[in-house]
Design a protein around this nucleic acid. Sequence first.
DNA 1: ACCTGCAATTATATTTATTACAAATTGTTA
DNA 2: TAACAATTTGTAATAAATATAATTGCAGGT
Lengths: 140, 140
Amino acid sequence: MANLKYSRQRAAIKEYLCHTTEHPTADTVYLHIREAFPNISLGTVYRNLNLLADKGEAIKISTPDGGDRFDGRTDLHYHVICRDCKRVYDLELDEQHIQSINDLAGQHFDGTVDSHTILFYGTCKNCLNKNCLDKNPKMR
Amino acid sequence: MANLKYSRQRAAIKEYLCHTTEHPTADTVYLHIREAFPNISLGTVYRNLNLLADKGEAIKISTPDGGDRFDGRTDLHYHVICRDCKRVYDLELDEQHIQSINDLAGQHFDGTVDSHTILFYGTCKNCLNKNCLDKNPKMR
DNA sequence: ACCTGCAATTATATTTATTACAAATTGTTA
DNA sequence: TAACAATTTGTAATAAATATAATTGCAGGT
């Protein structure tokens, strides 16, 4: 199964994922990659994103609103989604904490727990400022 | 906005959610509620599930594989998804830990963090046993 | 350099998931 | 119980993701 052949398209997709922090959806990746590969198909993008995720070269993030998002950063880290602008930000916690969360969960579950994802909710700096201006127009 | 009118359909959906621990998808809820309301429409199920989630009377769980799932338990708790059978189980951690995770995240994010969801991955007891039998048939 | 096999891509179709809308119905209030 | 508003229904539309058949293109061998 490790029989992956090189492909420019997949390489470009990975390249793009690694150089952006916007956690794009498959469709966003498609629109972007199209510029270099005008006739790449959306199916190819989906397949390669999932391939990369399966091989551990990308992360798939599911959110309750909107389609799945992808992240080229594969080291252990978390995500914060802004309730306001819906942007997804990276967030890192100490390795210790990450592991201790798994351990803690394992102790309370009738089975094994080996990993987890966390999606935090909040408001990003941008939107905090924006909201502040909206509510206090005099401040402008 | 708190202008919600009573409806049998919504009541039945909530009732069902509260009495199952299987974390059903909208479609599963639909198939089940259909028995009592043979001509309920799928749209009604979706709208009410989202209404309930918005009002905090249910929780919407997004997973990377398959559609969103819903949970009638609304107290703070987490979920473990079995990599094998894909079932979703409830998992509770101390209130302290839950809050400390939020606080920790807030300290590392340029903005505010007020809540989070965790999806744990592992293998449930059932599947651990099943796999064991598959690999060591003599044990049967 | 040129076959050749196999994996990847493309283009298209299909499935699945979800939302939108107009008409009919039902719950609530006076 | 009449009227108003929110809800449901049935259907259509959109969005998200996967499947498939035909074609392309990389990699190894001659």
